[in-house]
Design a protein around this nucleic acid. Sequence first.
DNA 1: TGTTTATGCCGAC
DNA 2: TCGGCCTAAACAC
Length: 285
Amino acid sequence: MPEWAELRITSDFVNKTSVGKGFIKAEKSDVSKVKTDLSFMNMNRPFTITAESRGKELRLSISDQKESKYLLMFMGMSGGFALISPKYKDYDKVMKHSHLRFYREDGMILCFHDVRRFGKWKWADEWSNNRGFDPVRETEEWKNELRNSYKDNHGFVSEVLMNQKLFSGVGNYLRAEILCRTQDNPWKKLSEFNAEEIENLMNVTLYCLETAYLNQGGRIKDWQNPFIQNENHATPMSNWILCYGSLQSSMIKDKTGRTFWFDPIWNSEVPEKYLKKKHKLTEII
DNA sequence: TGTTTATGCCGAC
DNA sequence: TCGGCCTAAACAC
């Protein structure tokens, strides 16, 4: 699931499946190592759930008659929600990877499903302070922060885009899609941008977050080759993705070891150090 | 059958 | 900067 668009879709899903519904208990799977105390949701007092996302964080507002608390959640690489019934034919298969479960009074179960178990959750009064403004929810604050700081930021734009303090919600597929649309040199330092280029970078970022959301986000495997060529499997996102994972794109491993996909027009700009690691420079068509 | 890869993030050198 | 946390699917041989 998990970059800006998928988090917002997840938040929509939780609201859609929880509005007007009472919940009666919550539990984690045996295999999960998350230690957050869930007793607040297990006191025989029905509670309600609403959700909100900010960047890559999801915040559930859990309320009973007495009190309201925030459960702050992180999706990791594979987290998302599902609503299932105990009668569902693949119930066991789904529950195997459902590591936090909210039981509705009508018998349905709202599950945090997370195959790789990198997802986490904890009680918190505030959003995490190591993350910046949400570009869409807090647009003006976000833009001002960037306008005030880009001149002192000497990181490559391709790597700064992964910084959750400055580009909250942007992850590995979004940075590729943003840069191929701005046509910026991925190895240009943020401090070398001029004011107009920064405005363009911010506006393209906003455009990408919003259109990925409108195209229903989803799972990368559902977007990629060879599905892109197969109309039966085409999704709105498979047409939206222009660069990430494409056979026409070049790639390197960035400083954190993650694959960065980019337009081959920038092949000659790739710094030497990245060419010592695994990489692929495709021909410009 | 073994190896590589995956939308993220943290903590130890 | 690097490995670690995890599982499963896609590759390579």
